[in-house]
Design a protein around this nucleic acid. Structure first.
Lengths: 176, 176
DNA sequence: AGAATAAAATACTAGTCGGTTCAAAAATGT
DNA sequence: ACATTTTTGAACCGACTAGTATTTTATTCT
């Protein structure tokens, strides 16, 4: 996961993975069945270990604008983790990916959009969101914009610039 | 250019290019020096034939919001051209690209941001833009968001959904 | 027409990729 | 301590990659 996350799933092959992990190649094939299985397992682990815990912040009963700001600050700060998001990196190269992994990505993305939509729906209930925007659309927008943030972080854009842009793009979600 | 545009520069090699173009491989190497040279020439031609003409719409003395809407409609409509943007596709895979091509991409992107910034600056002069946003930042935002639009079109997102999201993300540029 | 030149097609090189085979080594169970 | 099972290392496979060498075909110039 570390290597895929830091350098991108397309930039490192199974030979290199085995070399860096200090394991034998037959061992990897016994354990994961092949490169596709390894990537599926990595994506699964990334989702459970990195993405899902980050959803907890969205369920806290704090003001929507505040949580949004903290999220942007978190994504654009040096977290001691590899920059960017393995999930986002996989999605950018989804075209030449295994169909099974592609489906897995799409289903996880749906779960992500749903989580964002729920978050925004609760904000709407407290009059902390723009009522002209449906939770579903807000889910799409948040997914797209936060994904963009992480892709910009991967290519090394200045964090403050990334944060400013995202704030502008998402200010439409706040009540006018 | 057609093939790189439609299928992505990383999805097709020189052998396939020659096969589809009906030319011999040594001819390609005589003409372009190699794959890197071919990609540079393709990018150059794409910029001059596709991107640069589209800038003309931005210099027309029409209301900012109207031109922005037309631009979004254009990007999300079926133009009879391959969907998405070769420029955007190259940028998403800039990490494992030739350094020369990477520099070329960065310089073209600067020109693009400058064009957007000028456009927004003229809008500001006619009180058609949000004065709290600098032309430079607007240039970055427009570049990012319009690139996002094209990437979504590439992966086949529903055009109306893409357009709605982009409109929301860019409404911050309009005066309140 | 015939010689010189340019372009073409084919075949090839060297290397990487994901994946497999197999014998040797290590660990395990009794 | 011995026998069984598991894991390793390293070579290997076929398919692919970018790039090149060679030979044949066309074209052009005189």
């Amino acid at each position: 996961m570390e290597v895929y996350w830091r350098e991108g799933p397309a930039s490192v092959g199974v030979n290199e993975i085995c070399r860096r992990a200090g394991i034998a190649k037959p061992g990897l094939y016994r354990e994961f069945g092949g490169e596709a299985g390894l990537k599926a397992a990595v994506l699964d682990h990334y989702w459970n270990a990195i993405i899902r815990p980050s959803f907890l912040a969205l369920t806290a009963e704090r003001p929507f604008a505040e949580v949004l700001d903290q999220t942007l600050a978190w994504l654009t700060s040096d977290r001691g983790l590899p920059p960017g998001c393995l999930f986002a990196r996989m999605r950018t190269s989804v075209s030449h990916l295994d169909p099974a992994l592609s489906n897995q990505l799409e289903s996880l993305r749906e779960e992500m959009r749903g989580t964002y939509a729920d978050w925004f729906a609760r904000a709407l209930g407290r009059d902390e969101g723009n009522p002209a925007i449906s939770p579903t659309l807000a889910g799409y927008l948040l997914d797209t914009q936060l994904m963009t943030v992480q892709m910009q972080m991967v290519v090394g854009e200045p964090p403050t610039l990334v944060r400013e842009q995202a704030r502008l793009a998402l200010v439409c979600l706040l009540p006018s």
